[in-house]
Nucleic acid binder design. Structure first.
Ligand SMILES: [Zn+2]
Ligand SMILES: [Zn+2]
Lengths: 714, 714
DNA sequence: TAATGGGTGCACT
DNA sequence: AAGTGCACCCATT
């Protein structure tokens, strides 16, 4: 399944990506189309009344498979080509994936139609059908002010314009026979029987439709393009909200292929590069692709380099043209080196100018590599599929000040420390294979930073796909090693709940991960915790005394169990754990959101049966008991409660534990339970235990001089 | 605030409730209206194109307050009257409540407009505005088949009909000045500049609008009726889904006034009785109302009766006519007696024929009263505001076989046993003041049974409003005493999750309530548990071995806390506790959904800090410990675990408690903790406790012979 | 949290 | 190319 690409330059690179086969009033003629549409009412300067028919569908000499009704069949590869043929015939998209949900259809279609400059929206949907149409243009800034003018073949009155517009709408629907007065007798006042349109702007009349229908018999969705013609110019707008959502979903779905494709598309759009509008499948080997390029540590002068080959052979490399002069770095001594790896694959050839003087993969070194340099050298090229094969002691500074939106995605990033200093723009770290890294952001503004530490795949069947391990069940994901994610936000981003500053962990944290958050009055959220979180530390900086609050929103729909959430996890200072429904009451037993320094909770048992209970800033320090000879499972050890320095400990407004429950001295010979102010156990139970302990102590005091610990059997 | 009622007979009682002041093509002329609308295009026999203008607004001689713009002001009492005046002027509804949420507006308006035969829907809304219109009629079964016919003053072509329809639509909106060719230059193909309507059926053209706008300055909603004219006949349809939802919300909100009003309205509708369309406030004392009527135990022959007067005086009683002949009971010996209590109040005069031969309030007796008899005697009259002043040993059988939908609402029902045998129709028990009752349903089909045990109000300020204690905070509600609610469902109602068979408890259950459920393979749900549930027993029938499952869906958003849910509650056999998000995982610690007979959990502590943990069908029987001298709070006593008979106990596949943890004999002199297989405490803690106990026992064995309990101090 | 009117995405029916 | 309930928007003033 090799797909080559045929790129087509659109003439006007300034305003947008236009479908090369759709003729518009302002664009040049399409490359391969003959006008077969009927009743093309040429528009006047006012362009009125022709928007529904001003496309020029072409249909001739195509080798496309067709159904008996003339509708066309597609392959995954030729869909864009077929669609771009611009026909009025039905175009069956076949095969289509086995969509599990109705909502999966739109993204799949968007992947096809966004590159063609078509932004689709749902016109109507239910469980067995989704009808898509073009999104209405939002051009009408002054549409309200617009008013009457001469229509092409009508009078100039507003009324008749209205008439005309209405009539146009109904021409599409009005295919019923005309019966006379067949009103239901129970209708008191039968109005006229012609349907009316709901208010629609003149920018919302495109006849293009895509219909997806679900066959209950075959349990399969089928998709047909119904009116492959448009009343408007096609344009790919990477800045639209809908597109951003679409892109975000790609990231959620870990659709690396599509992300790459659209990153490329965005870059081309922004760079006014030609946009490919059709992908012609072949296997001639002429258009292989660049899959990735390794970033290696540059020497002081980038002279020597050796290309690193992956398991794929380097075949015919089609050099991509450099459409724009790459600005040279301001400092001539910038050390930026990429290594180009070319392999035969069905990827898109990136139009990224790659320097050929990249050195080979680096060996161990302690140098720092500044991605800022690379980014600057290569203008605004997002780094994709880049391997950072660095040593643990390397330091990588993602200084992305100069790049409004950097996507450092799909890289293999191990054993590094990432220090992002973004001011104030976006910086994304997505879908990287990460192990033992530290991600450290220092953002000086309420920027939108998304750090999505992705999983490492360890199973076998995907080992040959290093770099593209995604789109599988979440159970396969792992976040191994000891990773550290830290952010500094200098502003109180109260509106960050749904947008900014979220970490998204899709894989279980095995152990030892640390999330350092919230210096200087920040409000950070950890959202969509889809998996168990085990043995992690949530730590506030104890040296700061500003009010700050960490919120962890656990999506308990996705397997996060109360019992497992905080097993062997240290919670330090002012963390607030909430669940979906925003009722703190439900979580009082695992929250310690009071502004004291010593609100901690430790639970030693990683079973599914325990609950971490610490509702009133109480401490139960199980370290004072040696459970090792008591625990049955044996897999767990008691975890000590790492408190902040004494400075804040003294500020605690809560009564000391001894003020509530009498302390019990720990005895060496038998385990004891040291409760301070704890509510981990009920008061009654603790009192009962205290009673037992005191009784024991009393008895021991009576008997200990004799040291008789003999008769253990009952 | 006394409101009298002026009832108006609508002429045609067969099809619906029509607004008496709205003229239609088929109805008679309106009572008091002068046509002030402009451009009324009279319709021909086909009635085409006139539906938007065929009303005759009236506006003259009204004593209604007006704003300076001519818009009218309303009082809560005269809204229906003002609305029914049918004017084209703006009608300000003022005052309106201080709506806390946007969603509160629609129910409030529905309370006004449903009785007028107007079903409103939201046309458009945002945070500061809600626009309502009439719900589109669903008459158009053959609307597609309908087609062209001559329009009144146009040609007969479909096109021109369409034109006319469109133009009409635009008349409402087309108030913009006409400029020439002010299209944006970036619009590639500017079509004609007149807006179009989205598709609308011919039944959806009513110009009636209500606009609610939120003033940001005054922080207040204001509501204006914009086009008080309709293109259709008005009709109150109590069977519409929207109305049912509206009614359900009234019940949720405990809006007893409105519920009564609409129950009355429904009854009138079903009985083809006249519907009041306006309420004229006055204080003449001419139209007092029946507030309630007591149902008392009839004698064998219903002869003697004495009217029971409440604290309100009986004033002028307006006898209501008996519009239909009430069918006499098949058995002449039916003992059905109601006692009419009439008091001056602002309620609606029910049009219910009341026998005058009701006896006085009963004293103690052991007779059974069959509400079935009463229902049959009074045809389909729902029982409302009925006081059951019975003794605890009475038995009331709600045999509602003959009534498709009985609403036994707003009654005071104490110390009774209700046995419903519904087959298969609905039976509602709403808003009753209930204490120490047993509700027992035996439904032979998957009927829709709603048993809503209502609260008893104990506070002072409402004691004078017995029967109407609602619309207050939930904290005021109480469900005192020992109530028992039992249902038998003989079918597996798998689809009952959102619809059928739900119990709704709005008040806290103080203690001793028992919910007996699930005989014979039933799936019953307890939904929307809005308050704490304390000291209740959820018991499956231990004599049955069919697979059955009880589900309790706790709405934790409304105050139900994990910690409080099951305090002192016995959970017996196959109960499945889930929370909102349907993830059983989150509730494993309080579920015992394995098919064993002995899955029980008891927790003795009604504090907010405990969690009931019973993930593996374990039992901790705290009765084996006498906590009374340990508990500090003193408010709680240990609850015994009432197990089913031994038959199922022996079938438990679980290991006995002694198989896991060695039993500790209870000592008289010191409390002990008897854990069987429990996970209420962690294994480790229990082992620790056992260790302490054993140590204690060992020590006691060593020292007890000497009985030295002296040196207690450390 | 200005006030007011309208377009349109999209799922429910 | 279902119609429509509803809300998230945007536009104008
Ligand atoms: Zn289009
Ligand atoms: Zn209407």
């Amino acid at each position: 399944m090799v797909i080559h690409q045929s790129e087509q330059n659109n003439n006007g690179s300034g305003s947008g990506v236009s479908s090369s086969t759709t003729s518009t009033a302002t664009s040049t003629s399409s490359t391969s189309s003959s006008s077969t549409s009927s009743a093309v009412t040429a528009t006047t300067e006012d362009d009125e009344d022709s928007h529904a028919k001003n496309t020029v569908p072409s249909h001739q000499h195509d080798p496309i498979l067709r159904n008996e009704d003339g509708s066309m069949l597609t392959t995954p590869q030729n869909i864009p080509m077929v669609i771009s043929k611009d026909q009025n015939k039905l175009i069956h998209l076949d095969p289509v994936p086995n969509f599990k949900e109705k909502a999966d259809i739109k993204p799949w279609l968007q992947k096809i139609f966004y590159p063609m400059g078509i932004e689709i929206v749902i016109e109507r949907s239910d469980n067995t059908k989704v009808v898509f149409k073009c999104k209405a243009s939002k051009r009408g800034r002054k549409s309200r002010k617009s008013s009457t003018n001469g229509t092409p073949n009508n009078t100039t009155s507003t009324f008749e314009d209205t008439v005309k517009e209405c009539a146009e709408n109904f021409i599409i629907h009005d295919n019923k026979v005309k019966t006379k007065n067949n009103n239901n007798d129970d209708i008191p006042q039968p109005p006229s029987r012609v349907k009316k349109k709901r208010a629609v702007s003149r920018f919302n009349v495109c006849p293009f439709r895509i219909r997806a229908t679900y066959s209950l018999k075959r349990h399969k969705w089928s998709i047909v393009v119904i009116n492959n013609t448009h009343s408007h110019e096609l344009n790919f707008d990477p800045n639209s909200d809908e597109y951003k959502k679409f892109k975000a979903k790609l990231r959620e779905d870990n659709d690396l292929e599509a992300i790459k494709k659209f990153d490329e598309l965005e870059y081309r759009k922004r760079s006014n590069l030609p946009i490919q509008t059709a992908m012609i499948p072949c296997d001639c080997g002429m258009t292989n692709e660049i899959e990735s390029f390794n970033i290696v540590i540059p020497n002081t002068n980038p002279k020597t380099s050796s290309t690193t080959t992956t398991k794929q052979d380097i075949t015919n490399k089609k050099p991509t043209p450099s459409p724009k002069a790459i600005p040279t770095p301001t400092s001539g001594s910038k050390r930026t080196i990429n290594d180009l790896i070319i392999k035969k694959s069905d990827k898109i050839v990136p139009s990224v100018p790659i320097p050929s003087s990249a050195p080979a993969v680096r060996t161990n070194t302690t140098e720092q590599i500044s991605l800022d340099d690379i980014i600057n050298n290569y203008s605004k090229i997002p780094l994709k599929s880049t391997s950072f094969l660095n040593n643990p002691d390397w330091n990588i500074n993602l200084l992305s000040d100069h790049n409004p939106e950097n996507n450092h995605n799909n890289n293999t990033i191990n054993n590094n420390t990432f220090t992002n200093t973004n001011n104030p723009n976006q910086n994304h770290l997505f879908y990287n294979l990460m192990n033992n890294n530290s991600l450290y952001n220092t953002n000086n503004d309420s920027s939108t930073d998304i750090i999505q530490a992705r999983e490492k795949i360890d199973d076998e069947e995907n080992d040959d796909e290093v770099g593209v391990p995604l789109q599988r069940d979440n159970e396969d994901y792992e976040y191994n090693g000891t990773n550290q994610i830290a952010n500094e936000y200098y502003h109180n981003n109260l509106d960050s709940y749904n947008t900014d500053h979220f970490y998204k962990f899709n894989g279980p944290f095995d152990s030892g991960n640390i999330i350092l958050t919230n210096k200087y009055n920040a409000n950070n959220n950890v959202n969509d915790m889809n998996h168990e979180l085990l043995s992690n530390n949530f730590i506030d900086d104890p040296l700061l005394n500003e009010s700050h609050l960490n919120t962890l929103n656990f999506n308990t729909n996705l397997g996060l169990n109360i019992n497992n959430v905080l097993a062997n996890t240290t919670i330090t200072n002012n963390n607030n754990f909430t669940n979906d429904n925003n009722t703190e009451e439900d979580w009082t037993n695992i929250s310690n959101n009071v502004n004291t320094s010593s609100a901690n909770a430790i639970h030693p048992i990683p079973s599914s049966d325990f609950n971490l209970i610490n509702s009133n800033n109480n401490i139960i320090d199980l370290n004072e008991i040696d459970f090792t000879d008591i625990f049955s499972g044996g897999t767990t050890t008691a975890t000590s409660n790492k408190l902040p320095p004494q400075t804040k400990q003294d500020e605690s407004p809560l009564p000391k534990s001894s003020e509530q429950i009498p302390m019990v001295k720990n005895e060496n010979t038998s385990p004891s339970l040291h409760t301070t102010t704890g509510e981990v156990l009920s008061k009654e139970l603790k009192q009962f235990i205290v009673h037992l302990e005191e009784t024991t102590k009393t008895l021991q005091n009576d008997t200990s001089p004799e040291e008789n610990v003999d008769e253990e059997q009952k």
